[in-house]
């Protein structure tokens, strides 16, 4: 449904905690700050590049809290051997950005 977001509330609060621990500036994390976190997943860099492209919805080179949750969600799915989609499914677009 329109109101459904694939990032579950318990996931979102976990990802929000990680987001805050990275000390966002004006509510945004730069690529420099996010990169090592995603690299920790040990996923191939080309996969992480796709994750970034899908997550940085406004293409400003930074992730806000919702975009970061999308990135982390995709990383966790990829670790479970689910392929990263080529286009962000509507269920993964944060409700604030629809």
């Amino acid at each position: 449904t329109d109101s459904h977001w694939a990032v579950r509330p318990e996931e979102k609060s976990k990802f929000d905690g990680i987001f805050d621990s990275l000390v966002p500036v004006n509510g945004l994390l730069s690529g420099e700050k996010v990169k090592p976190v995603l690299m920790n997943s040990k996923l191939p860099v080309d996969v992480l590049g796709k994750v970034w492209d899908l997550s940085d919805i406004d293409k400003d080179g930074h992730l806000d809290k919702d975009e970061f949750a999308v990135a982390m969600h995709l990383v966790y799915r990829a670790l479970e051997k689910e392929p990263v989609p080529s286009v962000l499914p509507s269920s993964l677009i944060p409700p604030s950005k629809r």
């Binding site: 690529g31 990169k35 995603l38 080309d46 590049g49 492209d53 940085d56 080179g61």
Partner: peptide, 13 residues
Amino acid sequence: QYPGGSSSTNPFL
């Protein structure tokens, strides 16, 4: 800005 297009905002490229 990002003259190379959106891909240059990607820290993994």
